[in-house]
Simulated assay, not measured.
Amino acid sequence: MEDVIDGIHWSIDRKVDIINLSFGFEKDDPKLKEAISLALSNDILVVASAGNTLGLYTHYPATYKGVYSISAIDKDLKRYKLAAKGKIDYVAPGVEIPVYNQKGETIIQSGTSLATAYTTGVISILMSKEDSNVDLGLTSKSLGKKDDFGLGLLLIK
């Protein structure tokens, strides 16, 4: 936890535009919440994985107000079977995604962490197209229940 909090402060000091947290924690931590609040107050977007919790709850910091909470869907736009439910803002592809392992080999992985990285990339593209003082105007395609899909699949306009 301490390393994550230090990393958030490091990012704030360097005035980054966006922080990707493709992981989460089961338990809340006041110091994590404080660091996230500081990042948000410095106009840094925070995108976090909702978690692979079998639909039982949403991980921290994705559950915090102001943090984009991301869940995963498959190629048929169905919720990933292990994905969290609850505070979900958007969903993105996160099932059977080809990734490189430490040996440089392509392997197939699934999870909300992959969907979070994808979403951070989409938001970064949108941010690069907009005046930094303008609301991003995120658009999405609704896919069903808000507890499962949030506002839906994030789209590039």
Rank of each mutant, 00 (worst) to 15 (best):
P61H: 06
L138T: 15
T106G: 02
V67G: 06
M1A: 03
I8L: 07
I88Q: 03
D17Y: 12
M1D: 14
G94C: 10
K141P: 12
S22D: 07
T120Q: 00
S11R: 13
Y90K: 10
D148G: 00
V16S: 08
N101Y: 11
K27S: 01
S69T: 00
Q109Y: 02
K15N: 14
T53A: 06
H59P: 03
S41L: 03
I107C: 15
G55N: 06
G24T: 04
D135G: 09
E26H: 09
Y57E: 05
D13N: 12
H9K: 15
V95C: 11
L82E: 11
D147Y: 03
T119D: 06
I70T: 09
S132T: 13
K157D: 15
G121T: 01
L155Y: 10
E2R: 07
I36E: 03
T116Q: 00
A92W: 01
M1W: 14
D6T: 15
N42L: 14
Y60W: 07
A35H: 05
K146F: 02
S69N: 04
V99L: 10
K141H: 10
G144S: 12
E34W: 06
A84I: 03
K141W: 09
S41W: 00
L126W: 01
D74N: 12
D17P: 11
V16F: 09
K75L: 10
L56F: 07
P93K: 02
G121W: 00
I108M: 13
S49Y: 07
S49T: 06
L32W: 01
E2G: 09
I18F: 11
G86A: 11
D147G: 14
F23T: 02
S128W: 04
S37A: 12
V46N: 03
T139L: 05
P61A: 04
N133C: 08
L126N: 08
S132L: 15
S71I: 07
E26M: 08
G111R: 04
D17C: 03
I36T: 04
I12N: 05
D147Q: 02
G24E: 01
L143A: 08
I125Q: 07
L32E: 04
L38E: 12
A83Q: 02
Y57N: 07
V46A: 06
T58G: 05
I12L: 04
I125C: 08
K75Y: 05
K78G: 13
I70E: 08
V4E: 01
